[in-house]
Each structure stands twice: as C-alpha cells, then as structure tokens.
Design a protein around this nucleic acid. Sequence first.
DNA 1: CGACGGAGTCGAAGCGCTTCGACAACCTAT
DNA 2: ATAGGTTGTCGAAGCGCTTCGACTCCGTCG
Lengths: 337, 337
Amino acid sequence: MVTLAEVAQHAGVSASTVSYVLSGKRSISAGTRQRVEESIQVLGYHPNAGARALASSRSNIIALMIPLRTDMYVPVMMEIAIAVTTSARSHGYDVLLLTGEEGPDAVRRITGSGLADAMILMDVELDDERLPLLRDTEQPSVLIGLPADTSGLTCVDLDFGATGALCAEHLAMLGHRDIAVIGEAPAVYERHTGFAERTLDGLRSRSRELGLRVLHRPCEGGFDAMSLTLARVFDERPGTTGFVVQNESAVEPLLALLRRQGRAVPEDVSVIAICPDQVAVQASVRLTSVAIPAQEMGRNAVERLIAKLEGRGKDEVVLIAPELTVRASTGPAPATS
Amino acid sequence: MVTLAEVAQHAGVSASTVSYVLSGKRSISAGTRQRVEESIQVLGYHPNAGARALASSRSNIIALMIPLRTDMYVPVMMEIAIAVTTSARSHGYDVLLLTGEEGPDAVRRITGSGLADAMILMDVELDDERLPLLRDTEQPSVLIGLPADTSGLTCVDLDFGATGALCAEHLAMLGHRDIAVIGEAPAVYERHTGFAERTLDGLRSRSRELGLRVLHRPCEGGFDAMSLTLARVFDERPGTTGFVVQNESAVEPLLALLRRQGRAVPEDVSVIAICPDQVAVQASVRLTSVAIPAQEMGRNAVERLIAKLEGRGKDEVVLIAPELTVRASTGPAPATS
DNA sequence: CGACGGAGTCGAAGCGCTTCGACAACCTAT
DNA sequence: ATAGGTTGTCGAAGCGCTTCGACTCCGTCG
C-alpha cells in the first residue's frame, strides 16, 4: 500500500505539499505539481479513505436509503438509485446503500459515525419517523418524495397533485365522464406514502371542477388482483370509459383484460398510465402516460445535496412539473349509448 | 460529536478499555462492561467510521458493482442488491454502490483507497476486464455470474446450463418438437454475458439428445420488437409449439401477441419463462417458469464474502440448481395437423 | 532602498480509534 | 510460601491524512 509519505519522498517534497497538490487548497508551482503527479502515477498512489475521512471529517460518501418493500414499483427505484450513484460519482462522491429496514436507527448510525456526509431518503411517508432526526442534525439531506410537513427539509419529487389533475383534464377534454383510478396496493395507502394520496387529491379536485365522476380502487399488481378490481369497477360504474393507472404492475393485466372483454383501447376505453416513458412505449399498446422522471429526480436530489454540502443551497421543495404524452391508448369518449 | 475518550472519562476507565468493550477482543469484567455500556447509551456514542477504518485498516464496507445498462432485466438486479445489502448489514457490513460505468478503474480505486474491504461484482462478462485485477489483489471478492475462466475466483450463479436443459426436458416431455427461444437483447450476447449463452448451450445440447428442434432469436423487450421476432419465428418454423423466454420484458408482449393471433396458451402453444417467481405468478397467464433466485444469490454471495474476510472460505464456484415450477402456461403439444 | 505582501513550501499537531506490551491483582498448584 | 498463570486494565504508539502557522523567496510599491 502506497502512502502519501512515500509519494512525497519519491517526488522530493514534503507530505503536506503532496496533500496540497491533491486538494488544490494552496498554490503549487507548476514544476512541483508535475513532479508530484508523476510520482503518484508511477507509484500508483490512492489516498486512503479512512485517513482522509478522519483528518478532514468528510467521507465523500452520500447515503441513499431505499425502500425494502416490494410493493412499490421497482424499476423506478432502481433508476433513481442509479441516477443518484452516477451523478454522485461525477461530483466525487460515492454512494452507500441503506435499506429502509433499519428505519430511523440507520439515520442515527450514519450521522453518528460520520460514515456519510449527507443522505438521500426515498419512499418518504407523509409523517415519516425519520424526519425529526433529519431536522435535528447538521447533516444535509434531501428527500425524494414529499412529507406532510416540509419545514426545514429539502424535497424533490414529481408534482403528483398536478399529475392527477393533468390526467383528469386530458380525459375530460376527450369527453369522458366516468373515470376509474387504479391505484397502488392498499398497503401503500395505509403507510401514507405521499405520492399516491397526492395524485388522487389532485385528480379528484380537478375532476370536480370538470364534472368528472371518479372511482378510486387500490390494486395489488398482477393479473388476478386486476381482474377482481376491474370487475368491481364495471359493476359499480358500467359507464366507465377512462382509466388512470398508477400501479405499473397493473397496466399489462388491465390491457389484457379489456381486450379479453372485447373493449377496444382507445375506441371504447381510454387508459392513461403514470409510469416511466420506457414502460409506456414498451407496453402492448403504446400508452398515453405521465412520465415519472426517475433520472431527473435522482440527479436533482444529488445536485441539491451537493449544494448544501458546499454551503450554498437552502431548504426548498422542488416539484417537477408533470408532462403528459399522448400516445395510442386514449381517444374521444364513445358516443353514449 | 461524542468520542471514545469522552465515553472513557464518563465511565471512569481508559480509552483502550472502552475499545475492548466494543470489540470484545479482550476480556472485560462484568462491572466495567456495564458501566461502559451505560455511558455509551447515555452519551449516545457512535464510533467514528473513519478513525476506525484508519486504525484497524478495515472499513466494514462491501462494494457492490451493479450494471448501469438498462437492457438487463432490472427487478432481478434490484432484488439482488437489496438481498446483498440486507445480509451484509446482518453481518455488520455496509454496502457501497458502484455502477459498472467506471469499469476496471472502480476496482482499482476501491482496493487502492481501502474504501471497502471486499467486493461483489454483478453482470460479469465471459472475459471480463475486471477479473485480472481481482486475481491480483488481496481483497476478497465474489462474482454473481460466471466468467469463462473461474480460476482463482469465487462465483455464485444460477446454473443456467441446467436451466436451459430443464426447459428442453419439460417441453420434450410434453411432446413438443419445434421450440423457439426468445433470448435477451442482442447487446447482451455481443457483450458475452455468460448467463445468456450458457442457457442456450444447455438448452441446445439437451434438445439435441431429446430430438427437439431449436430456433433461437435474441429480442429486445417490448411489444414491437417481440412482434417482429414472433413473426419471423412462425415464418421460419410454422410448427413451433413451445417457447422459452429469457428476456422478461418480452413475456407479456409475447402472451398478448399469441392471444391476438388466436393461439391459445397452453392448448396450442406452451410458454416457459426464466424469471423470478413473482413475475411468473403476476403475469396475465400463470407462467410455468424456472425461477431466478435473486435473494438466494445475493445472500449466498455475501456469505462467501464474509467467509473469505474471516479467513475461512476458499475459491469456489457455487451453481444453484434450477427449479422448474409447472403452472398454467405449458401443456401437451397439440396433435400434429 | 527598505518595508510589504504574495507565492510556494515545510514541519508539526492532531483527527479518533485500535492494539501491543506492561503491569497489578488475584488464583491456583506445588 | 513461591513460582506460574489468568484476568482485567492502562498507557502509548501509531494508522495516513489534512491543515495551520511559520518561513523563505521574490517582486513591487511608496
């Protein structure tokens, strides 16, 4: 293992000089810099992370808490995680992966041990028990998601309220009157995960203004659950012609079921999905959708976090404006029979 | 920030004693131990990770390199990542997330800096450029996946060769004669990712023994790609009655297309998927499948790694035996027309 | 022309922890 | 009673790095 001291000796300078070459915190003559950099190359030097963390009290690590559960749509999580990791790296940070499993203790452990300089939390509940800890600590943090009380916090999220409203508007504009929302699994609501409720609120209040009737049904993913849910929807509101699907693992089952029932999409029934674009274009019908901008959320969160770490950056709530892309799954409401 | 020294003072012992209480590396009297533990509680002490790493030259961190690409089925990756993280935590390790993006440099950076004590690599190519580095270093590592040359390496993977064979056997037993393999995206083969080729090899050689005719077609996920692929399959081999699908994002499109063409599953056509069980039961037909045991792979990899870190544990290749579960998507081949 | 300031470098003092050797106190076995 | 072992505790020496103050050159300005 090569140390700073060895590099210094090899380059004929003092250890501190090498350190300053590395950090750029003091000016170094061109000649010295070059000699040092050569020695680093030749010896294959890599600064020791522990020593660096100890001396500077910065680990250059960002902690990322991802949900453990499997009832949330996973690709989105994965995409965010990768976006976070990639952009963190481009700022010189590594990412430590934590699962929600440990809960608030994980927050204590990380802030206490100085393992990470900052953290990003995903899957935030409306009244998340980790929040008080975050407010108390010096350690910068960013939430991906929106709790009920955002005071003293920085949050990044898709504007799910607007997303719901957008769906309502699109369907209303096409002349639909009875619409059904296929929501996330019941557990997601019980846990009071903000995004699901906010979507619904946004959709409902805009629907009221537009004179749409809304039926909301939570739904576990999969074919069987969707089948039951769909039956009950048409049972209760036979005239339903518009669907908004939030649970992505219900999308394909829904399409298959509608097909099987002889209801054509989009001639008889329109479907809007809230999902990443990739999913929308890969489905068995090219789906009109509101995109979940996973990449952007991850990148944005990292950028806020870095800003905070560097002293710029304030507490703020960033709501990304939703965009609805019209594809082949929505069309004018059929003439009333 | 509370330090060891403060705990020591509060408990009326020396710093080294506190350290020994924490590590258990020397015997401590019951009384002292208790006083120290109380002080730790009262003061809310958390050992500083950097200092600990520096002094002990162990960071208690495992690095996990996941693929960046999006052409691989993501839920499996996510599941493995979560399994790795969870079991690492239960052994007292944290997980550092790296994307394949950095390539071999990431390996150098991690081993050089002592940021992690060991690493787990996913998405291993047959002739992966990271392997020489791993063989050269002292740092323990485990691959999830199987390269061409496993000498000096520890690998954990599903036995994809046997998986392919198993699929062939099942279809042969049901009387099918012409089968098609819907493979991963072409890029996966070009990259020489081991699992895809091994599945195919296993399937082909067993098919030869059993007298099955095999048509293999790589396929990007999604409806459009699958539609093209399927057309070409039936064009070339109109008598195809059995499908083995490796690319999970092709499963639903395939089912939808078959339905649309009026081919009933499993009466006219049988479909086997290679995918996590959850996917198989949630599909629009309950799929006969060979499970990808993501959890087990993750857990297993961590256990081997810990064993190596503790000095037990040798280089070995662990191939998990595949299990085929018969569900509703396979049945006897239709009588030849 | 002397005082001054900036650029470039060095030495030394830690950062908070682990770990080694030393030592005191006690408990056996002779 | 004494040698020998255990057991429990302490002090001190680092681990490899950052960073502060100090120092030496220079070039510059009044």
